[in-house]
C-alpha cells in the first residue's frame, strides 16, 4: 500500500527525502544529540540520539520507525521539551526548544503510549482544565471540551472517571486533549500500542479525520503497515541515527533496488491476461475457473503461456513492504 494515492501521485524525493520545500517547517533539527551520562559518571555515556537532522513541514504526517532503543522516544522527548539536548539545535514552529521550552509547549500536543490522563478528574474535566492550562477562558474551555468529546465520540462518557474508560476510549480522550488547544504539531508516541484490533481501528478512523484537517503529525510506531498507510514520509532510525528517510514508496523502491519493486502476482497475472488476449482475441473464450483439483495443471498452462509471451517468472516482484525495508536496515536480531 502506498500513500501516494492521497497525495496525487508520487512526490519528488529530494535531499529532504520527499518533503515539500514550499511549506513552512514545523520541526527542524540540526545535529541534534542526546547523550545520557553513565551511572558512575566516568565511563562514556549512552548516546541515544546522534546528530539528528530532521525537517517536518506543515500539514505533513511524519513517521519515526525503529526498534526499541533506536532513539525515537528520546527524539520526541527533546522536541516536546522533556529531554534536554546535549548538543545540536531543534526548533518547533520556529522556537528553539532549548532556549524557550515554555513557548514550545504552547505549540505542541502530545499523546503518550501510556495513559497520562488525570485520574483525579473526570473525562470532561481532563479536557476543560487542559484548555485552561493553555490560557482559554472558562467558557471557551467548556465549549472546547464539549466539542472535543462530541468529535471523538465520547460525549456519553463525559462525567465518567477516567479509570473507568476502556483502553481505546482513554487513548481517544488523550488525542482529544492533545488537540484541544490546536497545536501546530501533534506528537503521537506509539498511538495504537496495547489496543485491541477494534480500538486500533476506531483510533485510526479518528486519526484519518485529523489528517484530513491538515494537522501536522509526528508519530512513532512499531506497526509498519500503519506507518505505510498513514505517513507521508517515514524515517527509519537505529542507534540514534536515521538510516533511511523518504516516502514509503521511495524507501521500498530503494530497498528493492529495482528488482524487488516488480509487479505483484496479481499485477503480473493481469498483464499476462491482457497480453494473452492481445495475442489471441479469442482467448476470452478459453477463460476457465481454477477448480482446486485442476490448479496445478492450470498453473503449468499459465506459466507456459507466460513463457511463450516472454513474461518470465523473474519479473514477478517480491512484494516489498516497509517491513522488508525495516528489517534490511535494522536487522532481525532481538534488541532486548
Amino acid at each position: 500500500m502506498s500513500t501516494d494515492s492521497k497525495a496525487g501521485g508520487p512526490r519528488t524525493s529530494e535531499a529532504l527525502g520527499g518533503a515539500e520545500p514550499s511549506r513552512p517547517e514545523v520541526i527542524a533539527t540540526s545535529r541534534l544529540t542526546k547523550t545520557y551520562p553513565s551511572r558512575d559518571g566516568r565511563a562514556a555515556g549512552l548516546t541515544a540520539v546522534d546528530g539528528l537532522d530532521l525537517s517536518v513541514r506543515r500539514g505533513e504526517i511524519f513517521g519515526l520507525l525503529g526498534p526499541n532503543g533506536a532513539g525515537k522516544t528520546t527524539t520526541v522527548g527533546m522536541l516536546t521539551t522533556r529531554v534536554v539536548p546535549t548538543s545540536g539545535h531543534a526548533e518547533v514552529n520556529g522556537v528553539d526548544v532549548a532556549a524557550d521550552p515554555a513557548l514550545v509547549k504552547h505549540f505542541i500536543g502530545v499523546v503518550h503510549q501510556v495513559n497520562t490522563l488525570d485520574r483525579s478528574l473526570n473525562a470532561w474535566e481532563n479536557l476543560y482544565f487542559h484548555g485552561r492550562y493553555y490560557g482559554m477562558g472558562a467558557k471557551a474551555a467548556r465549549d472546547a471540551a464539549d466539542e472535543q468529546l462530541e468529535r471523538f465520540r465520547l460525549s456519553h462518557r463525559a462525567r465518567s472517571e477516567v479509570r473507568t474508560l476502556s483502553g481505546g476510549m482513554a487513548r481517544r480522550l488523550m488525542v482529544a486533549r492533545a488537540l484541544l488547544h490546536r497545536p501546530a504539531v501533534l506528537f503521537l508516541d506509539e498511538p495504537t500500542a496495547s489496543l485491541d484490533p477494534q480500538s486500533r481501528l476506531a483510533l485510526w478512523e479518528v486519526l484519518k479525520e485529523i489528517r484530513a484537517d491538515g494537522q501536522t503529525i509526528l508519530l512513532t510506531t512499531h506497526y509498519m503497515e500503519e506507518a505505510e498507510a498513514f505517513c507521508d514520509r517515514v524515517a527509519i532510525m537505529d542507534h540514534g541515527r536515521i538510516l533511511a528517510l523518504g516516502t514509503p514508496a521511495h524507501l521500498k523502491h530503494a530497498a528493492g533496488d529495482g528488482r524487488g519493486a516488480g509487479p505483484t502476482v496479481k499485477a503480473w497475472l493481469a498483464r499476462l491476461w491482457a497480453e494473452t488476449r492481445a495475442a489471441d482475441p479469442d482467448a476470452a473464450d478459453h477463460g476457465r475457473r481454477l477448480d482446486r483439483p485442476a490448479v496445478e495443471a492450470t498453473l503449468v498452462e499459465v506459466v507456459e503461456a507466460a513463457e511463450r509471451l516472454g513474461l518470465g517468472l523473474d519479473d514477478l516482484g517480491q512484494g516489498v513492504t516497509l517491513e522488508t525495508v525495516f528489517f534490511q536496515l535494522t536487522g532481525r536480531d532481538l534488541r532486548e
Partner: peptide, 17 residues
C-alpha cells in the same frame, strides 16, 4: 507510577512555575 502529571508538566509555562 501513574504518569498523570504529564499533561500538567506540558502546560505552557516554565517547569519551575
Amino acid at each position: 507510577i501513574t504518569n498523570e502529571l504529564e499533561d500538567r508538566v506540558l502546560a505552557p509555562t516554565r517547569v519551575s512555575v
